[in-house]
Design a protein around this nucleic acid. Structure first.
Lengths: 153, 153
DNA sequence: TGCGATTTAATCGTGTGCGATTTATATTCT
DNA sequence: AGAATATAAATCGCACACGATTAAATCGCA
C-alpha cells in the first residue's frame, strides 16, 4: 500500500516534527545566549543586529536598514529612537529627499564596535560545532527564508 | 601566512555572515508565511504552536508546556488566558497539587485540529524544498539550539 | 503647471518574549 | 507540628514584530 507520511496529513504531528519550531526555539536560544554578552554593552539582541548592519555600512536610510534586517519602519523607528537615546546613532532627514531618514553612527557608536568584537567568538564557542557545519546549516536556513519570502506576494 | 577567518575577529562582518541572523530572519519569514493560514482559524503563530503541543498531548501543566515550547509562565500565562477566552482550552488547578495548572482542550479546541490539518502541507509547498533537505536543515538547527542551551547554565 | 499617485517614515494597537519579583502551595527537616 | 526551603504560576515592565493607518514629501503625467 502507498505510504503517506504524516507530514502530509497534518495529523499526529508533534512540535519536534516542525521545521518552523526548530527555528522558533533556536531563535529564542540565540537571544538568550547573546543576552549576557550584550548586557555588558547595553544593547538588546535586535539592537545589536542593527548595529552590525550600521558597522558594515554607515549612513543608511530606514528603508535600506529594513531591507537588510527584513523589518519595516513600524519596528525600526522605535528601535532607532532608543539607539539615538543611547548615543550610538543620530537620525537626520536627507536634505535631498526629506522623506528619507539617514541613520549615522556617532563616535560612541563606532567605538562600540570594538567593545563588541569578542562576541562572535563567544557565540561560536557556545555553539561548539565546526565552522563547516555551521556554514551548511546557515545556507540551508537562508534558503528556507528566501523560499518563504519569494512565495509570499 | 596563517589564515584567520574574519568570524574570529568580530570585525568586518556583515549580517549575512551571522548564523543567528539567518535564524532570526527565517523566524520572521515563517511567522509571515503562517499568518494568512492562521488568520482563517483566528490563531497567532505562537498560539498555533501551543495548540500543536496540546493536540499532541492534552492536559499538560504550564510547566510541561513550557518545557515543550522552551517558554516560561511569564509568556505562557497570558497566551493561555487568550486561548481560554477564544474557547479552545480550559485552565484548572490540579486538585492533587494546587500549585499546578492543568491545561485541557475543549471540544472546540479539538475540532480546531481538523481545520488546521491542511496548514503543514501549505507551508511545505511554500518551502518548495525536498523533505530530505528540510529534515537535514531541521536537525542542524535543533543541534544548534541544544548546544546553546546546554552551554548556558 | 497642477494634481493624483507613489514613496518614506511615523503612529497606533495587539500579542508575544523575558528578566525580575510576588503569591500561593507543597515539601523537608529537625 | 512548625519554620525554612522549594516549586508552580502569575504579575509587572520593557522591547520587539507587525498589520493597518496616517502624514509628509516627491514624482509623473496630462
Amino acid at each position: 500500500m502507498a505510504e503517506r507520511p504524516e507530514v502530509m496529513t497534518g495529523d499526529g504531528l508533534a512540535l519536534g516534527d516542525f521545521l518552523c519550531f526548530s527555528i522558533y526555539s533556536a531563535g529564542h536560544a540565540f537571544n538568550q545566549a547573546y543576552r549576557p554578552l550584550l548586557d555588558e554593552i547595553g544593547l538588546t539582541y535586535p539592537q545589536y543586529l542593527l548595529m552590525v548592519a550600521l558597522w558594515s555600512k554607515d549612513e543608511q536610510t530606514v528603508k535600506a536598514l529594513g531591507q537588510a534586517l527584513y523589518l519595516e519602519s513600524n519596528t525600526l523607528t522605535p528601535m532607532l529612537k532608543r539607539l539615538e537615546g543611547l548615543g550610538y546613532i543620530v537620525r537626520a532627514r536627507d536634505p535631498e529627499d526629506e522623506r528619507q531618514l539617514r541613520v549615522c553612527l556617532t563616535d560612541q557608536g563606532r567605538a562600540l564596535r570594538a567593545r563588541a568584537a569578542a562576541i562572535p567568538a563567544c557565540i561560536l564557542d557556545a555553539l561548539g560545532l565546526p565552522l563547516d557545519d555551521l556554514k551548511k546549516i546557515q545556507d540551508g536556513i537562508s534558503a528556507v527564508r528566501d523560499h518563504l519570502l519569494a512565495h509570499k506576494p
